[in-house]
């Protein structure tokens, strides 16, 4: 289960935002991923508290906080599974 502060962006993943969409390059695996707008927001702010991001998304997009939280957690877990997010050093 994804938790605040447990993960960070993988330093082996190069990325930049192009026209509002994050393009991630997994250098070791030789894969690229493109994120949609909300995914890009979550990726750019992955080091910030989840509840703060959920509040911002809920306000900016008019979506229920419960839905925004559920989607954000699912997204972050998929980023961990793909290796884009890795465990932060303790």
């Amino acid at each position: 289960m994804y938790e605040d502060g447990r993960y960070k962006r993988n330093p082996d993943v190069s990325w930049r935002v192009i026209e509002g969409q994050a393009v991630l390059v997994h250098n070791r695996e030789g894969e690229i991923e493109v994120l949609n707008e909300v995914g890009t927001y979550l990726w750019e702010h992955a080091d910030e508290p989840l509840e703060q991001l959920v509040g911002n998304i809920s306000r900016d997009y008019g979506v229920a906080p419960e839905e925004a939280r559920r989607d954000a957690l699912e997204f972050y877990e998929s980023m961990v599974a793909s290796g884009a997010l890795v465990a932060a050093e303790t």
Binding site: I32, L35, N36, G39, D60, A72, S78
Partner: peptide, 17 residues
């Protein structure tokens, strides 16, 4: 004006050869 919400997702993925 509020933006349309889209569930956060990977919208494109490709293996680079």
């Amino acid at each position: 004006m509020q933006r349309a919400y889209e569930k956060p997702a990977v919208i494109y993925k490709e293996k680079i050869e």
